[in-house]
């Protein structure tokens, strides 16, 4: 196994595209290194992207934020403006693993690991994040909900790397949240995860809403129906209930070691309700403890 640590994204893409064997991109390594050590993966080359400046920085302008794909959860938490704008996203990234893991694990890695249960992904999807991709054919942008297409399957072509994510500026009356269900209190993986971002007008009517679910299908889902159930309402109990029902209806989970199908569908509705409420409180300027 070779280790490469190029300093430009172009060089990284070249290495990735040129590799005849099995190439893997290394960001934080909290999934990749474990998979190599336990013989799940046996790559011929590992390409570390952390030396590429664009993957390691958070920038912002009037339009919003650009977050490097190799920025860690802990670094997101230390970015006050991002934390104020998208607390749900920052919290989601900091539910992953332990404090030590959060010091390594990255948004890009969490998405590209290809697990439907990745905590930060529903939060990114809810926030309307776009993946900025560089490859042999140049640059392109892809909505985060379109990046993962199945378990361990991505819509990236050979040689493509996600450099960063763009997230819009926080709307005036906007709020986001991410909640997950785990049997423990931490150090666990989502049995169901739910990200919500919504936007209100001055009168409190919902003008936009995005709800995303993790761990209930072969990939994280953007549940458009749930968003529609909220838009145009005051996000009252009936609207929340309708959105929760839409969330449950969108689930197509499996029975596995982490939960049954029935359990996941039911809890997706419960979490949708709770997450919408928290996002709403934030949109209304009320903050509350999440966990």
């Amino acid at each position: 196994m070779r280790y490469e640590a190029p300093e430009t994204i172009e060089k990284a893409c070249q290495l990735l595209a040129a590799e005849a064997g099995h190439a893997r991109v290394l960001a934080g390594g909290t999934d990749l290194l474990v998979q190599i050590k336990t013989d799940v993966l046996d790559p011929s080359v590992v390409i570390d992207i952390k030396k590429i400046a664009a993957t390691r920085t958070i920038t912002s302008d009037a339009a919003g934020f650009k977050i490097g794909a190799a920025v860690t959860g802990a670094e997101l938490k230390e970015h006050d403006a991002l934390k104020a704008a998208w607390p749900g996203l920052v919290e989601a990234a900091n539910l992953i693993g332990s404090t030590q893991v959060q010091g390594r694990a990255t948004l890009g890695g969490n998405l590209c690991n290809g697990s439907p249960a990745a905590d930060s992904v529903p939060a990114l999807i809810a926030a309307g994040a776009k993946a900025q991709i560089v490859g042999p054919e140049g640059r392109r942008e892809l909505a985060v909900e379109d990046v993962m297409i199945g378990v361990r399957k991505l819509a990236l072509t050979k040689g493509e790397i996600i450099v960063s994510f763009t997230v819009p500026a926080r709307p005036k009356h906007g709020g986001d949240a991410y909640l997950r269900f785990i049997p423990r209190t931490e150090m666990d993986i989502a049995v169901v995860g739910c990200g919500v971002a919504l936007e209100l007008d001055a009168s409190g009517t919902c003008t936009a809403a995005r709800l995303s679910l993790g761990a209930v299908a072969e990939r994280p889902l953007l549940v458009a129906e749930a968003g529609r159930a909220l838009v145009g309402t005051k996000v009252d109990a009936a609207a929340i209930e309708a959105a929760a029902a839409a969330a449950s209806a969108a689930c197509r989970p499996i029975d596995d070691k982490r939960g049954t199908k029935v359990f996941r569908i039911q809890v997706a509705g419960v979490l949708a309700r709770r997450t919408i409420q928290l996002a709403l409180d934030r949109a209304n300027g009320k903050t509350g403890a999440t966990h």
Partner: peptide, 9 residues
């Protein structure tokens, strides 16, 4: 991860 002994919290 999936054999869940309690954690401190």
């Amino acid at each position: 991860l999936d054999y869940r002994i309690p954690v401190a919290s």
